[in-house]
Amino acid sequence: MPKIIRKKLLINIIAVVMMFLLLCILFDTELLGRKAAYFNGLVTIGMFYTIIVCSLNLLTGYMGEFSLGHAGFMSIGAYASAIGTTLISNRTELPDIVLYIIAIIIGGMAAAIVGVLVGIPALRLSGDYLCIVTVAVAEIVRVILSNVGIEEITGNATFGKSFAGIARVSDYHYVFITMIICIAVMYSYIRSRYGRALISIREDRIAAAASGINVTKTKVLTFTISAAFAGVAGAIYAHYITTLVPTYFNFSKSSEFLAIVILGGSGSMTGSIIAAPILSALPQLISYVFPDFASYRMLIYAVVLVVVMIFKPTGLFGGKEFSLSDLILKPKSKKTQVLSQKVNQE
């Protein structure tokens, strides 16, 4: 491992640990008092939003294909993991952490399997057509979930009517660590030969093939990875909310994820990481801070989207990454970069 990378890694690890400690101080002490539970919830939701938005960014930003069905993959992860943990905890008592890990693995695997099955035929398409297929898949999943049931869990009813009593194991400590791992995995995927191949496909599919890249394979692999992380996010959601309804995972949820990706900047992981928690919490925060305006919260959300799109059409980060370690190691490099860019333009 090159020296500079080791340094950067160290800085990032320190930053992550500090974040973690900050959360611990906020939620595990009496600092916030009774409000702690409320903010704890916002943060946990923000964290699984971060995972799913990053996973969608993998498709939208790096592969250059839109998916409007990510809520579908999320629901697969959510239901599969919830069924799994409910069946397990009906039989044996397991500690929370074990149950949580099982949930994450089941959720990720289930979504990945569906991702492969959908991806292999669907990724022959691209652009608008692929987009429509993803919508269709998500809707199919939703309708199926609304109409089937498992006797041991839901009795005679279907998942659409009742699926409550899922073990609440998505503790924010675990979720935070999961989120960091997910982001790290996706980031190193992008910064490897696989990611390079992926971005080259986005830039020019034919040239990528003519450079020896197996376009279909790379696309299916990425689609699967993306679906898997959406499933992980679903598993976290299920074990935090503890009650699932198929209608939560509808089209507008998918488009919300996509809106966050675009807003943060497609092709920028840091953009997604910053935009996801803010936008997922924004409606809640508005109604919390201005109770009088609570009914206008979705309007304000929409205004934020429109304003950003007008003034920064490429999203907040516009395909660039924010790097803490660059900021610390060579604080002047940014200025010189901007300068050299200006020189180039002239």
Partner: peptide
């Protein structure tokens, strides 16, 4: 190579 250059522009 290609007649109308096909590079990966944003790389």
């Amino acid at each position: 190579t290609f007649q109308n250059i096909r590079l990966f522009k944003k790389m």
